[in-house]
Design a protein around this nucleic acid. Structure first.
Lengths: 225, 225
DNA sequence: CAAAATACAATCAGTCATGTATGTTTTTAT
DNA sequence: ATAAAAACATACATGACTGATTGTATTTTG
């Protein structure tokens, strides 16, 4: 996906949802938009960001390219909307996984996040992050959203795990460690840099580490072994 | 880099170095080849694999595209040679770092590998690994070499750290943990997924972990704190 | 019901990468 | 020294993607 060849200031297309409130047509448009965003994610996962072209996304969504350009005037606009949608999806998944305090035992949480980082949302996300390293235009779109995502993720984490409330430093370490290990492992496995067989050993070690870092108050309720 | 549009069996071009022994011309060719491989790595690091085109590499190497096609008939051939060169470079770096047994203290080793994963060789490597996930032709080139690299890396690791010899399971865990955390963190920092400020904390934790995993015999000589 | 807006389709010109074919100069070998 | 071979350069044909333009059907609104 080569973003915007023309050098027009990438307007956020404020004219898109202009004045139609909740009409029949608006619903149809919203559905088509959704289909396009899902098609974009599928394309990124299947073909990689570099080979996610506008004709390909249109075809994957079962739409003509012209129709697609009507909803997203630019490749850039499509990608931006996709990133926002991906962030929402990952945050919802994280919230769903952690909002039941009765399942705050370390093993379940680790396994749940491990399952998450193997889903399309995370794969597409990493694909975009890697591409943004060398694609300044994509970086201009992604990095601010990335920062916002990190903040919201952290805020949600603190809200969802009050049992760590009195040890912010430990919590920070546990979170960073979990993210680094599981996300790094997911990428390593996906790209063939690591053998799948080592995953259980690593996850078990991570779980033990988290328990060791956990404050005693929380360990009483959430630690298993 | 879109590898080979034509579907010819990607021959390894055995006719390249045909019968000229050690003449002046052979030296010149070898130097040009080197320049091309280095230019390829620079292009991958600067522009990403997707935007590493044959004209771009030629220009970066200060060569015409025709001359380049003389040394590597294909984009695929160029990439394959680059991957092999990258692997050699990473293995040499690893060996150099670990071949002085007097510097086998955990802190030095961790810092050295952390420095390694921030160098061009690792960045290019990851770029290629990500691209190969969705580029079957690249995967056919990369994956076998990747497996060979892993084997040689592990063999070298066992040879260079005899002090862990009697605890293969622990050694395996320590190696996997180190690679996952440092490589994962390098990628996360590069792509903006992680804040640079968290790196020291993570490295310190990793060092403690390795010391905890280390067999007592080795800990006597290599453990610091 | 007529006019305006929206959803969607088809086509065009510009750009760029790939592979190949064809020249030109330098090196090697007889 | 001269012919072959290798190193290097130039030019061309093909294909793909991007953005823009133009056209049609459906829906909303006054």
């Amino acid at each position: 996906m080569a973003l915007s060849r023309t050098r027009t200031t990438a307007s956020t297309k404020p004219a898109a949802t202009r004045s139609n409130g909740g009409t029949l047509q608006a619903a149809k448009a919203a559905q088509t938009r959704s289909r396009l965003l899902e098609a974009t994610v599928r394309c990124i996962v299947k073909h990689g960001y570099a080979n996610t072209t506008t004709p390909r996304v249109a075809k994957e969504a079962g739409l003509s390219r012209g129709a697609m350009m009507h909803h997203f005037e630019n490749g850039a606009a499509l990608i931006k909307a996709t990133i926002i949608e991906l962030h929402e999806k990952r945050l919802r998944a994280f919230r769903r996984a952690a909002e039941r305090p009765e399942e705050h035992d370390v093993d379940t949480l680790v396994e749940t996040y491990w399952a998450q980082v193997q889903k399309p949302a995370f794969i597409a996300f990493h694909e975009l992050a890697v591409a943004a390293r060398t694609d300044k235009e994509l970086a201009d779109i992604l990095l601010p959203l990335q920062e916002e995502f990190r903040d919201r993720f952290n805020a949600q984490a603190h809200a969802l795990f009050p049992e760590w409330g009195d040890s912010p430093t430990q919590f920070d370490l546990a979170m960073s460690l979990s993210q680094t290990i599981m996300e790094g492992m997911a990428i390593a496995v996906q790209t063939g840099a690591m053998d799948r067989e080592k995953v259980p050993m690593m996850l078990a070690h991570l779980e033990n580490q988290i328990r060791a870092i956990m404050p005693a108050t929380a360990r009483a309720t959430a630690g298993k072994s």
